[in-house]
Nucleic acid binder design. Structure first.
Lengths: 214, 214, 214, 214
DNA sequence: AATGAATGAGAGTTCATTCAT
DNA sequence: GATGAATGAACTCTCATTCAT
């Protein structure tokens, strides 16, 4: 797939603002109607700009989605790569931080998260065409964290790190989706905290009440 | 959304066979190209029938997908409802059985699983239009199992059962997707067993190596 | 450039007829409005068929033009190749026959000739894209006839055969265009004959009244 | 069609220069890509100006082409009208001079000639819209020269002068086009001279080797 | 039951032109 | 004069669906 366009990268602040304005509008309509039911004119109308202006800033409707993803995902990737490389944190703490990152994002920008999960991560658009899931980089980071944790004796050595990465990520992702499908994504900040707590408990210490071992 | 069609329900065995033939072809092409990149004529070509015939057996292209889902999902739902109601199994065993159901299905019919996850569960088609996730019934069953397990002291009481259901389901789902994206979905039966084992370990006893409690 | 489509080559006579019907309509509207001012819907309307049907029989609007050209030009090429290979005719007679072919065609099917000359032969569409003028094959045949005539002492040896081919062809072509621009392309059959006679006189014996040589 | 614009006729020399600069660039890109595949921004880019500026100097994209034509064609028309009115030249010499004019122009400014022939003379843009071929003035001049030559006994009286004008002009035109389609338009000056010689021989004394008369 | 020609609404994209700066 | 962001009409092509045979 082509690189998302970097057309006229901030030749002026005005251009950058317009770009952002369109991107913001796009996220909102994509979240509301879904990518493939959204017409380019919907984005334009929502952004309050003319039809053709979209094509000043983006190559195509697909490119708009691409850019929504790249702009936001890059931030997330940078954050989790930072965690991965942090020598002062244990594996469990790193995973907790990742959960927090996700859930916090869901609180702050639910539409963006929804679009990224629904229309990019899960869309056949990405999954199929590229053969390389756009999320693979994130999976790889989590896997690395898990493996490092196993090496240092912090995480159970019997677990397949790749599968663990999928499980961890999928759990987070589906929680986000599930929560979003309810009218009010996250009732309040305390709800968000409780969700984080639950994820961490499940992933790190399991559902079972019984103590480990024999 | 309309009910999936039950047009001409098995007026003859021949008709039922044709229907199955088309459905099988549809699963294959949906898995390969994704629902929205698949044309009705692609399904027809793959099934070796004229594309007008598809409209004898189904109301629309959407209806074909719907039927793929319903036909297969119904089996799965019946199975997990049976587990839920089984008085002889503990919550952990029920969840293990659900994992097994999923991973086994992935081994036997990967294309079907892929279509159900990608094009139905995750598609804005279902998620958005209906406001009611097609998977909600499954979530509800898992939630019930978790809650029962908590009541009986088998599962940790501090966990939010709804979030747990999302986490459990999402983990399974993403593992399936992740494994499918690799050329060979499941290398062999032993691989499948190892995946199940990992899921169960993570979900039931957690990633952490440290023993629980003092 | 892609080969003009041979979609569904006469699977039934009905299909062949429909194809011809569209092609006939296309020639008429192309002749009237010019290719690039003609919308696909104009062709459809003129042919009395639905918009989309054009795309059953042709790949694109360009393909329609391509097919107009190929279908008709092939006939002409066959004819002049036959002349080229005829051992019983002198070069002058061959050239006369070619003139007659052109002018007769102009009488019988002026719109077709117009479209071929204006929209294909002269269009940047062909001239530029292909770097190989669609008419090159015809030029080559005429050139061969001229060279053979020179070898046999029938035509002046001092003339550059390539340039002669261009001149001969261009003269014919422009006469056709010029005549067509007048309301009534060819006033009557006698007019046509007079045009042929003039072309032949000019090309074969020149404009000058003076006798050749010293 | 509207008159080509004379916007801001040389209010300053700078303006005139800008105009020429744009026109020169336009000729080059029209020759390379063809008029209808050339975007206004292509002209601007090639001229090194902002594309809005083109609308300071010209009314529209069509107007640019129009001006390319007018500016150059006017020179040619003036020349052949001078020839027509020259009492000291015979008809044959006048026609030879016209050939020379064309071929020389092709040597000096091939792109300009190409644009004039392809995009103006032959374009449905002019041919159709105006019903009056932009070249009609030139045809008329040549026709007048031929008729005068016939009256003075220099040219064959049996020839239709109108048709002769088309033939002469078309021959020249197609030779130009044909030569241009080869990588190197005119190999060298000697080639140009040979081409002129051939045209003159063909048009004035014919292709046939046999002497005229009984 | 089966076919595939026929339909036409719908959507993405292009690009000449305008205009505020 | 000069710029290029902004506009939106125009147009091609796709494809789900219908229907005569």
């Amino acid at each position: 797939m082509n690189e998302p366009s970097r057309k006229r990268t901030t030749s002026t602040d005005v251009a950058a603002d317009r770009r952002k304005q369109i991107l913001r509008a796009a996220v909102e309509v994509f979240a509301e109607r879904g990518f493939h039911r959204t017409r380019v004119s919907d984005i334009a109308k929502h952004a309050g700009v003319a039809y053709g202006l979209i094509y000043h800033y983006f190559d195509s409707k697909d490119d708009v989605l691409h850019c929504v993803f790249e702009d936001n995902w890059a931030v997330f990737m940078k954050a989790i790569e930072g965690l991965r490389d942090d020598p002062d944190l244990g594996a469990a703490d790193k995973l907790k931080a990742i959960s927090a990152l996700f859930i916090d994002a869901l609180e702050v920008a639910p539409a963006t998260i929804q679009v990224i999960i629904q229309e990019v991560a899960r869309s056949d658009r990405f999954v199929q065409t590229e053969k390389i899931n756009a999320f693979n980089a994130a999976f790889a980071v989590i896997r690395t964290i898990v493996e490092a944790g196993q090496d240092r004796g912090e995480l159970r050595p019997t677990i397949d790190a790749e599968v663990a990465a999928y499980a961890f990520f999928g759990a987070l992702e589906t929680i986000c989706t599930g929560l979003m499908l309810n009218a009010v994504p996250l009732r309040d900040h305390r709800h968000a905290e409780r969700v984080k707590e639950t994820v961490n408990q499940i992933m790190l210490t399991g559902l079972c009440a019984s103590t480990k071992g024999p």
